[in-house]
Design a protein around this nucleic acid. Structure first.
Lengths: 205, 205
DNA sequence: TAGATTGTTAATCGATTAACAATC
DNA sequence: TAGATTGTTAATCGATTAACAATC
């Protein structure tokens, strides 16, 4: 019988990690829940509570070793390894994603790219050659990739997502302005700017 | 004494609106909390509860008029008007944002773009000419724009954000991989893919 | 040692779900 | 009318905060 960690807690860990990596890069050896909290706008109590879900990483009186906590969080999040990404939809946004260095820097490598425009297939984008959608299922299955970035039009997103899952994809970073209805064991994160803008305009009167 | 609506409820309204607009486009005249909920993976009870924060929009026995509810939600979210956007940072991602038609379609218009690279200033991107950062504060203040999209490197994000606020910006769509620490009356939404990917890799073992 | 800070428990707060009278 | 579905209240569930003994 395993304890299940709330998803909302897992979602905060990457933010802790980012701030701690920043400290590490700047030579800060030790921090406290208080200091870490101030750097990202979260209460010290919440940070201690969140971390306690995974173990005991600090020392009373002195706080946390930055290096040790970075190592632990990387391990918990499984980012102490390289991950293969699949890109579907190579429009303006897809092109920007394919050439964005931030992915590689954090161990995320685009290994396949697909587009349904015949004018694009065969061309290179970043390190990979754009393939047609007809090759999607077999190529992804071959690659063993588990994560896809979806930057197709909203009208195609649901259908493409279902094909991705058949190909073995288990997590989707969805840039399409479309809510996906998928099995519960598939992880989807949404990066649609319109929804976020409309959320903010509420407050702008 | 006004009742304050929870932010988490406000955040769901754009999703309701999107699904309802889709129904409207497809000629669906009436819907129920049940049907709407199934289309976006939210319980019927929650939808009714959320909507009840803003008024009574339905009819017992028949449900909601799609057109009426769309109108109401657009009005609540203030998206029945045009909004001016400012773009700061015109790299690959910024370029993709500037040319993305999805913004214009929803009434969001980029009216100013800034970059600190002298090689870029003076060039056109989308409908606007890229200006240098030195012109940022005055031009934004002149324009009266209230929303900015931030796609600068993480190292510059906090500083640029503070300048934006001085210029009159009150909401920031942050693409930089960096948590911003800003006054409480400034609204920030985060669209950083790395944090989302690291959230998902937790579950991929 | 004295001061600082953890990990954890209990208290509080807020969000979601269930249930149902009202009524179209 | 009978069936369907709302808006709302009460019950449940989960997340955050406060407090503090333990201890470095």
């Amino acid at each position: 019988m395993e304890k299940s960690i709330p998803d909302i807690v897992v979602g905060r860990l990457p933010r802790y990690l980012r701030s701690l990596e920043y400290m590490l890069k700047n030579g800060i050896k030790t921090t406290s829940s208080q200091e870490l909290g101030e750097s990202i706008g979260i209460s010290a109590a919440q940070i201690r509570k969140d971390l306690s879900q995974f173990g005991e990483f600090g020392k009373q009186g002195t706080g946390y070793s930055v290096r040790y906590l970075v190592d632990q969080l990387q391990s918990i999040l499984h980012v102490n390894q390289s991950w293969d990404l699949v890109l579907v939809g190579v429009g303006d946004l897809g092109t920007a994603l394919a050439t964005y260095q931030g992915f590689v820097n954090r161990g995320f490598h685009i290994v396949l790219a697909f587009d349904n425009d015949p004018a694009k297939t065969g061309k290179k984008i970043g390190d990979v050659t754009i393939l047609g959608m007809d090759q999607m299922e077999t190529k992804i299955a071959e690659s063993g990739a588990k994560i896809a970035m979806l930057s197709v039009p909203a009208s195609a997103a649901q259908e493409v997502a279902e094909k991705l899952i058949k190909s073995g994809i288990r997590a989707i970073l969805n840039y399409a302005p479309m809510q996906l209805i998928l099995p519960g064991d598939i992880h989807v994160e949404y990066l649609d700017p319109i929804t976020k803008l409309q959320h903010m305009t509420y407050y702008l009167g």
